[in-house]
């Protein structure tokens, strides 16, 4: 079965040979392609924003859950406020873990995005398949100085978004991806 080890099968070997022939004119050094990707994490801005939003919304809920039942029913009902409070603590930790799990790597020919703690997902998009690169930034994100980069291919299922980047980094990434995409562009 070729699935496990494409490197030593004839097919991948042949592909590698043609690749090497094609890549000779490229300026890259002749390192093996199977290098470990250099991962980049997300800047802490996204975590700050999400945690702040969590605290604000759950704080309001805690307040409501603590005050309203105590006013209308019995003061003992104020214990209900512990529920959103616990949720807040749990969410605080979860957001941190989720933020740490996001990372991306620009390799010579494709972009890798990896994310998720319990439900892990890793996406590889060859630059030649990119149809458009989008930088978006909502009002809240703008306030925190964040922007996200989204990649679209011809397949709608391709879900390649990098959220919470520094706007300058997002634009650099967009320009670089567009440039690489043009250089390696391929049709459908």
């Amino acid at each position: 079965m070729e699935t496990g080890s494409p490197d030593d099968t004839g097919t991948a070997g042949a592909a590698r040979a043609t690749r090497a022939a094609g890549a000779a004119d490229r300026a890259e050094p002749a390192v093996p392609v199977r290098d470990e990707p250099v991962w980049t994490g997300l800047p802490p801005g996204l975590l700050h924003m999400r945690r702040l939003l969590l605290v604000v919304w759950l704080g309001l809920l805690t307040l409501a859950a603590g005050v309203l039942p105590a006013l209308f029913l019995d003061p003992a009902w104020a214990a209900l406020a512990l529920l959103p409070l616990a949720l807040m603590a749990w969410g605080w930790v979860m957001l941190g873990r989720n933020w740490r799990s996001w990372r991306y790597a620009e390799r010579a020919d494709d972009l890798l995005i990896s994310r998720g703690v319990l439900w892990r997902e890793e996406t590889v998009v060859p630059y030649g398949r990119m149809q458009l690169v989008e930088v978006t930034s909502g009002p809240v994100e703008r306030h925190f100085g964040l922007a996200s980069v989204q990649l679209h291919t011809a397949a709608a299922a391709t879900d390649a978004t990098i959220p919470g980047l520094d706007p300058a980094e997002a634009e650099r990434l967009r320009d670089r991806l567009t440039e690489l995409g043009e250089a390696r562009s391929a049709g459908l």
Binding site: E121, E122, T123, V125, P126, R129, A154, A160
Partner: peptide, 27 residues
Amino acid sequence: VQSVRLTQGPWRRALRLADVHVDTGAN
């Protein structure tokens, strides 16, 4: 192939399994 994705939920992770999705241009 337009993009390749690997997904792994908690149960699959416990069993050291994973799914590989291959996306094509016909959606």
